[in-house]
Each structure stands twice: as structure tokens, then as C-alpha cells.
Design a protein around this nucleic acid. Sequence first.
DNA 1: TGATAGTATGAACGAGTATTCAGGCGAACC
DNA 2: GGTTCGCCTGAATACTCGTTCATACTATCA
Lengths: 135, 135
Amino acid sequence: MNEYSGEPAACVDRLVDADRVHAVRQQMPTDRAVDETADVFGLLADPGRLRLLVALLGGELCVCDLAAACGQSESGVSHALRLLRAHRVVQVRRQGRRAFYRLADAHVRMLLDLALAHLDHTSSLRLATHREQDR
Amino acid sequence: MNEYSGEPAACVDRLVDADRVHAVRQQMPTDRAVDETADVFGLLADPGRLRLLVALLGGELCVCDLAAACGQSESGVSHALRLLRAHRVVQVRRQGRRAFYRLADAHVRMLLDLALAHLDHTSSLRLATHREQDR
DNA sequence: TGATAGTATGAACGAGTATTCAGGCGAACC
DNA sequence: GGTTCGCCTGAATACTCGTTCATACTATCA
């Protein structure tokens, strides 16, 4: 659960920095906003979907081409696009028996651009590949 | 050449827009880069972790305060911080028996800022709240 | 009309993951 | 020293989610 409803389990009366805690609770977005934002990030959290979206950055593509370009099965691509479609991240245009998809969410496009830009000028994302600890 | 594991299942010889498909395959980041990027987004894809990171945007906080500010159990917070720590997203500073955490990844901070900024000027994230299809 | 290509869907399986509970460890305080 | 406090960890549970296989649907073509 990610409810705000329940009061913190402990350490309630002895906050170290009560002011900031209070400020944070004030500024924290609503549950709904947080959930929706997490959902958006979740859509980008799968390598397959990420590839599809990156492919679509340059313009629309049909399912067939998307599968070929991203090295995925057409069924898998279709399932992924269904999800992205349900969240209004991509938009479909049907032409004959083909379906052309394109990015439909400026927000997601910005997130993608930011992520790719970061990949560029730091080939060292320095992602601790599953090593524990922190020195 | 940065090939994907499996060759496309079908529709290989009859690409609709072979040029763009080829271009996409050229520009597509490496498998490793895609996976790492997806991992980063995955860290932001959980409401609980998202709250913690938003709370840390203003500066460091101890586990106790984080739990109180975000309405989570201290155990849950600790587990989440462990993950974020392993990925170098947060950094810890120990003082006595307390542990103060703070954001350590400029990239993630930018992603958070972008997401929050988007929440501001569009209270209508217009996220199809689990409605299927548009057909 | 029948056949085929492109896409979509549903079910099933397996893998990964969040949450909870119980306990453990080190630092401060008496 | 013993105790409390703050934080960490491991195990167990339940759950979500991606992938695959089989099948269905719709539009084009012969």
C-alpha cells in the first residue's frame, strides 16, 4: 500500500527535523498525482517498451517495422503498444490493414530526450550493477 | 553492428519503411544502455520510492523523518533506500545512530524536476486511468 | 468468395518485486 | 554493564508483470 492514511509506525513524536518533515508533507503531490507519475515512469521501465518509444522519436512506424527495428516479436510489440495506447503515450493511425503508431505525449518525449541526452555525454551512467554497499 | 539477440519473427523482407527501420537500428543505444536506462526509470516507477525521492529534493533527511514524511514503515523505507543506494541514486551520511540520506544523482534529480514541473501546469495529466482501448 | 497479410487479443506460465514480520547490530544513554 | 533507540537485514508471502503460444479479427488481393 502507498496510503498516506496510516500514521507512521514510530518515531512520530521525536522527529529530528520536524519543520522539514512538515514542509515535505505540505508540498508532497497528492496520492493520485504520485501514482500517475509512477505509472508513467513504469511505462519507461521496460527495455522493450523503451526501444519502441525511442524508435518512435523520429516519427511514426507500423507494427511490423517497429518489431523489426527493435528486434521483438510482433505479438510482444502489439501488447506493449496496447499498454502505451491505454495510457495515451502513443497514438494510432490505421491505413488499410496496417497500424501506424506515433508518440502522442510531449511529456514522455521530454523524459526520453533527457534520458538519451544523459546517455550521450556520460557513457558512464555509473550504475552500480547490482553491487551492494556504499563504501 | 549492435544486433539484438533474436532476429525479427516475420515481416523481414517486406518492411514498409526500410530506410527508417535501418536508421532506427543504427541510432538505437546499445543493449546495455537501454537496460540501464530502463532500470533508472524502474526506480522511479514505485509510488513509495517516488515519495522518498521527492522528499529528498529539498535536502537530506534521516530514515525516521523520511518514514514520517512519506507515511511509510521504517522497514519499507530502509528497503527502498537500500535499492536506491545500490544504484547510487542516494547517498548516506551517518551521524551517531542516525543515517541521513540525500540525492546523489543529478540525472535523477532532473527527471524528478521534469515530472513535478509537468504535474504543476497540467493538473490534467490526462492519464487514462486504467480504461482500456479507444478503438 | 476464399486466401492471405497485418494486427490484436486472451490465457498460461515463469520471473521478478513490494510488503510484512521477526530479529539483529551498533551507538547513545542510564 | 544493561537498556533503549535508530536503522538494517533476511525470509516468506502475495502480487505484478513480461513473454509466449494459439487464436481471432479486419482489410486487401486473387
